[in-house]
Write a protein that binds this DNA or RNA. Structure first.
Lengths: 253, 253
DNA sequence: AAGTGGTCTAGACCACCGG
DNA sequence: CGGTGGTCTAGACCACTTC
């Protein structure tokens, strides 16, 4: 119902629709509830399905909706706060770290990482794959790049690859003095492999956190972590993870 | 049985197109160069314009392209690093702060901010509007919420509103002991007013940074800043702003 | 098999910018 | 004014999940 009249104001239909749906979500739906399917919704609002989808896309980007092919569209829970930066600098894999090391391989780093690491051309790096799961949902996938020169004492004591190898590399890293680190956050789109790990489609919006670890005056490790942008809120500072009430619509005061 | 399905999955056209275009941008275009228009590009690749646009949308999200209605599509420069978190906590408006205070008003805060501030129901707050411009480009719009109880000594010494008033409120804030702060970063979409200030269309992707300022055991101020997600990279830590070479495609190693 | 969201098409018109 | 990107339509088919 509620086919509100279109105004002469050139507000795009999909934007107006987004607002209407957003208000409906607040007042008439509960978390987890499934919405009518796109064809019905489009008909109800008197728009083409593509237009309706444009509105849903916005709401999904804002973390209000969750859409799954073959299943339907549901009302998303509030975003999960993920502590990504604390006051004290710590190595990845340190105590309290909830990441799960999945794999490790030795290869040449992508050009962008090589630039950050300032490694010699063609120098190989350990590439550790880790993933983060909270509340039963995969939220992040990480690639940790560690030049072989950063962990020289690593030998064949462990398996040459696999999760055990990954943990061994991290263990070696802990022995270094961590003198500092810095981070950058930017928007990206999930590559095919990351998307699969995050249970999303390729191109899904992700928050890319690039961290540099400094020791002995050098950059000894670089981490590139991709977080699901639809379900995550990255927290920094003293009280990382403390609840911040979420205002999904960012309504004007 | 081997449940690992390595079947050749048909890659969506728009995704493949994104990859092709991305590589073309790397090898055959320079920053600022104008691309052929969408109708020509679509024809050249033998796809519908909508499909071509889906690929361009991805690349714009990744900060590779810049599209302006009535003008054309250009190759975007690398993202600007914006220092948003330093090791030491500082009040907004402190020395070195490059934000430009634009306006100030007294009003009831939106529900989400009221929840964070834990203000009494209906207590009015000063709402300071600021904006950040770097390299001649608007990159962020901020709303600072400061309960009247946080700046009790503020009187009618200045104008009741406007930029001068905004600066007066910030000046009063400096007198408090800043005991701590924390931040959260999440993806959002620009409201109409923010979009206008950021020179974008409504719904444009933005990085929303919510900062809480603590003093005397309370939350004395809250900042909600929206950064253009297409052009900005938010930096935290020791060397905020130091160049990190950007890998726009996030190619696999 | 039925129903969902995801992709794609071939048009049309509109809002905006520049000369 | 012509050219650009932005919006919108009414279909079609595909990939996936569930029953």
């Amino acid at each position: 119902m509620g086919t509100t009249q279109l105004e002469s104001v050139p507000e795009p239909k999909y934007w107006h629709l987004r607002t209407v749906l957003s208000e409906a979500l607040d007042s008439e739906f509960t978390v987890g509830e499934i919405l009518p399917n796109e064809r019905d919704l489009a008909a109800r609002f008197g728009v083409a399905r593509a237009t309706l989808r444009q509105a849903l896309e916005q709401l999904e980007l804002e973390g209000r909706l969750q859409r799954r092919r073959g299943v339907g569209t549901t009302v998303a829970p509030p975003r999960v706060g993920v502590a990504v930066g604390t006051e004290q600098h710590v190595w990845p894999g340190a105590a309290g770290d909830t990441w799960h090391a999945a794999d490790c391989a030795v290869s040449a780093p992508p050009a962008s990482v090589a630039g950050i690491l300032e490694t010699a051309d063609g120098e190989a790096v350990h590439t550790v794959r880790r993933s983060l799961v909270t509340h039963g949902q995969p939220v992040a996938a990480e690639l940790l790049y560690i030049p072989e020169s950063s962990v020289p004492d690593l030998s064949a004591i462990d398996a040459p690859s696999g999760a055990a190898r990954a943990r061994a590399v991290l263990r070696e890293l802990q022995r270094l003095d961590l003198e500092g680190q810095d981070r950058a956050v930017e928007l990206g789109s999930a590559r095919a492999d990351d998307a699969k790990e995050l249970d999303r489609l390729p191109g899904a919006p992700v928050l890319v956190v690039t961290t540099r670890f400094f020791s002995e005056g050098r950059t000894v490790a670089v981490s590139v972590a991709t977080y699901r942008a639809d379900t995550c809120r990255l927290t920094f500072g003293d009280s990382g993870g403390v609840e911040i009430h979420h205002d999904p619509e960012r309504r004007a005061s």
